[in-house]
Design a protein around this nucleic acid. Structure first.
Lengths: 346, 346
DNA sequence: TTGTACGCGTTATCAG
DNA sequence: CTGATAACGCGTACAA
């Protein structure tokens, strides 16, 4: 045991499996077996190794381990948003919370892969294909994300949160019933006696936005109402406000608006009030997400979307997929439910 | 090139450095040098390797690389919150955004380490000490987090966001000027003619909460006002509401409240309105964070806290620390600034 | 049940 | 400037 007095970097090398084995009085192999499955190792050897583990504070070297096992014990959460501002949407907090929940009690670590504006999508897919993670959860998928095929072809276990554009690729995904949500919004506004209805959609290069719009149109038809004005938003509050202004320009007698996210609904209400209209008296507003918790502002009628649960489900499915490549790949769809609050009171 | 027809797992092994070398007509060593620094390698060899890289789609095996370099090209973001709900605070979105920003243009990946209620703090510190990451950013640090010393002693480059409890450990940190923020809040409320002032603090096992409270008390003294009632909140909206109720019970003639976070200020306003008081007429309210973007609700006077920039700074400092262990360790404090809005109008 | 020996893909050392 | 060759720490046939 030599002791260097002046060591600029106070990092003592962590004990290796070799150290552990000698400390336990067994061979490397036995120590290895004891650490892992623990099969085919005598009770006394097991005990000796266990003791050595705690006394040495041994932690297996992940790099060395994954080099031979070809598993990394980590999964990627791919958030593909060019605009960093959307990160502020509670949606992502819910996703992170849910995925983390699925990973607890697991050795798996979560690697955050945020692709930014600079078109470094190739970098993301390279990383994913490079064997750095055992699987990936992809959220916030856009139509222009051409790498979806590459990813599917790579064979990396992958679960999408939100239906991918090309379901023909056999990609595993979980989603909330956006179509039904849009439909419920239309039916609810109609049921409260409103007849001139418009909608602020999400970015139409996302399936969630398209599905909500389709459900909305279906709901209008079922209610016997004509298709009203449609404006595309961007899932931000200012975007919602701008879109609402467009809607009002198209039909100033509008008495009901469905916004495809709560965040946008905020903007819609702001625009309505700025134009001298009151909510819900003049115009009823329905949001989507049920993520808002801002007492003090007008309670928003919205479509409940169990995002945390959805994300947790995605995590569990991915883990199962990693364990067994032939696991069930059927999409899982969570139901949408209308939550009525003051913004559509009659 | 043999082709297996029935391959259950469509994963073709990614090309190795060996493959790359033969494809480029050079040796492994040269290929390696070409990939990395590129020093001491002839232009033609470099070109050959570069070409082979793109044609083969080569990606270095991270595990193998870090096994020998002892660097992992990844850093951890440690979020230490027992309650998953607080993740909904925009604060964390800002932190993630900021750190990600610091890492762009870098090969570094971000590993999210969220410790949950189950007291698996030891697991976190084991992971950190286990050499799985090159450094760590710790946010949301609580007094009871006993592992701070272990972490400091481990020599792992670490940067705290928010002053750690034991600054004697020489831990590198960045922070916003919480003290000054609290002071500004008190002075502002006093300047608007309010004299019976109370505050809802954050959890007092966090330095940010303690600092804001200290600044608040100092501000009161400077304004010649007596120390008012103090209630401890938990950085959530319901917690803010409860604390405000406590404040009112202590002094029902209160005409000004400072909440140590915007989220809590929402709860405060809710509680005030529920008690029949109006804001800002009866009671002025000041928040802290300047993260709220909820048009439709009362615009909140608050203390601006540049969290994204702070987090970015933390990321850059950590990178510098990893590069050069003897880098500057002086704490970096971002200034606080009062943003006046309607909630304290006179 | 245990131990020996080999290989995982890279970088670093050291002769050429 | 280049190319053998030796580590890096671990899992696992294979043999004992």
């Amino acid at each position: 045991m030599s002791e260097k007095i002046h060591r600029s970097v106070p990092v003592r090398p962590s004990p290796t499996l070799e150290d552990l084995a000698t400390a336990a009085g067994v061979s490397r192999s036995t120590a290895s077996r004891a650490i892992n499955g623990g099969s085919r190792v005598s009770p006394e050897a097991q005990a000796a190794v266990d003791a050595a583990v705690v006394s040495l504070g041994y932690t297996p070297n992940r790099a060395a381990r994954s080099l031979v096992t070809r598993r990394t014990s980590s999964i990627a959460l791919v958030i593909n948003e060019p605009d960093a501002r959307v990160m502020m949407d509670p949606f992502f907090a819910a996703v992170i919370t849910g995925v983390t929940e699925a990973l607890r009690e697991t050795e798996m670590q979560l690697v955050l892969l945020m692709s930014r504006a600079g078109g470094d999508a190739s970098r993301t897919v390279r990383y994913l294909r490079g064997g750095h993670v055992d699987g990936a959860i992809v959220v916030s998928h856009h139509k222009a994300d051409g790498w979806t095929e590459d990813l599917a072809a790579s064979g990396l276990p992958t679960v999408f949160i939100g239906r991918p554009w090309d379901t023909g690729l056999g990609i595993h995904y979980v989603d909330v019933d956006s179509f039904e949500g849009g439909r419920l919004a239309a039916l609810h506004l109609a049921a409260t006696g409103r007849t001139r209805l418009g909608t602020v959609t999400g970015p139409l290069d996302m399936t969630a936005a398209v599905d909500r719009l389709a459900g909305w149109n279906t709901g209008l038809r079922e209610a016997g109402l004509p298709p009203g004005p449609v404006a595309e938003g961007d899932f931000t509050t200012p975007g919602g406000a701008e879109a609402a202004a467009l809607l009002l320009a198209e039909d100033e007698g509008l008495d009901g608006i469905f916004a495809a996210s709560d965040i946008m609904a905020r903007g819609v209400i702001m625009a309505l009030q700025a134009s001298g209209r009151s909510v819900p008296e003049d115009v009823g507003v329905v949001g989507f997400d049920n993520h808002l918790t801002a007492p003090g502002e007008l309670p928003l009628t919205t479509i409940n979307q169990p995002m945390v649960e959805t994300a947790t489900k995605a995590g569990r499915l991915l883990l199962a997929d990693i364990e067994d490549t032939r696991s069930n790949r059927d999409p899982v769809i969570f139901p949408a439910r209308l939550v009525m609050r003051a913004s559509t009171a009659v």
